[in-house]
Simulated scan of single mutants.
Amino acid sequence: MGSGGGPNGPQGEGGWRLSGSLEEFLAVAGVYLRSRPALHTVALTVSDALGRRGLDLYGDEPPRFGWRAVSGEVDAVLLWTPPFVPMVVGGDAAAARGLARVLAGGGGLVPGGVGGPVEQARAFAGEWARTTGQATRRTFRKRLYRLGTLHRPALPPGRARSAGEGDRATLERWHDGFAADVGATVGLCAGAWVDAGLARGGIRLWEDGGRPVAMAVATLPVAGSVRVTTVYTPPALRGRGYAGAVTADLSARVTAGGDEAVLFTDLANPVSNGLYRGLGYEPLAEFEEYAFAAGPDGEAR
């Protein structure tokens, strides 16, 4: 996939333009992304991290960016940071199908899947299957929540505190434990993930009896929104209220700073969905991810 042309350059199918330039992407699509910061939380935080820490943040393969404009207004965005699958942000089914055709005919890096809001992800996967003959398989369903009124739970023994350098070994183990639980990487290797979290002061721990027993992590605020992520309790300590306590503490800190708090859950996990609803998080949207593989079945499912 090449640079594709900027806002005044060649236009792809369905009005899509592709670029390898983060600066161009944000200049053209930044206002659109910031117009709905909760829905666009991942694209905002990832592009912010790329700008602060470099385009090689997630790997050696450079990121790809794209946008679709209708009557001069951006209404859909592509953010692709290999080795992760492309993300379709906004738009509709027609926009997603057009993007699938553009990437299928781009002659460059081939995506191994796609992620996005349910309608767009399904449309992209279906068009990819039709165009390429590859089989597609849904691998993940998640729900985005936004905090309404925080309902503090009954607190277990212990207290909340910020993580420090002395917690590094624990945090690295918990990073890997969380990744194993959700069946995916957190985005960075354990050491780099801890470095970034400690540097921004974004890792909050619940401590009981002088030892950490649970964690929750906050992204840096972008466009007035903060994503709570990587909520984790080691298996032997679950069911004691630690995750709810540390998430409530972190959520209160986020909103006290004037930002909104959002988070994702795995729809296959009723425990976490019930926990966050109990804290006052309200469903906002649902997302899916698909993996692509060569095979005779060309239908999305």
Rank of each mutant, 00 (worst) to 15 (best):
G183N: 09
L39P: 02
A100W: 06
P157Y: 09
P62G: 07
R36F: 10
R143Q: 11
V194P: 05
T230I: 12
G202T: 04
L78P: 00
A243K: 12
L44Q: 03
L22P: 09
V186H: 11
G72P: 03
S272W: 12
D92N: 13
G106P: 06
G6D: 09
P212G: 10
G30H: 07
G257T: 00
T131N: 01
R159E: 14
A252D: 03
E260M: 09
G116S: 07
A169R: 15
V42D: 00
L198S: 04
E286G: 04
R240T: 02
L39I: 02
E260N: 05
E289D: 03
R159P: 05
G244W: 14
P10K: 13
Y276P: 06
V88S: 00
P10G: 02
S272Q: 11
E289N: 11
R130L: 13
D60Q: 14
G9C: 04
R200M: 12
V231M: 08
G106I: 02
V226M: 08
A163Y: 06
G4R: 14
T41F: 15
H151L: 08
G6L: 04
D56S: 14
V222H: 06
P10Y: 13
H175K: 08
L263G: 10
V231Y: 11
G164Q: 05
S251K: 10
T255R: 15
V89P: 00
R200P: 05
A236C: 09
V31W: 10
W206G: 05
T139Q: 12
S47Q: 05
H175W: 15
R97V: 01
T45M: 15
D297S: 13
G210N: 07
P212H: 04
T45D: 08
D208G: 07
P283E: 09
T136A: 15
E119M: 03
A38W: 13
A184G: 00
D75R: 14
D208E: 15
A129K: 02
A76G: 04
R141T: 09
A248N: 01
T233Y: 10
T219S: 15
P234T: 10
R17D: 07
V102C: 14
L99I: 06
G72R: 08
W16Q: 07
G4D: 01
V88P: 03
A223R: 05
L103F: 04
S47Y: 14
R253K: 13
A95R: 08
V182T: 03
D48A: 13
G177D: 09
A27V: 04
Y32F: 15
V110Y: 08
G91P: 05
M1E: 09
R277G: 14
W206M: 00
A293F: 10
T41W: 09
V231S: 07
P63L: 11
F65M: 06
D75V: 12
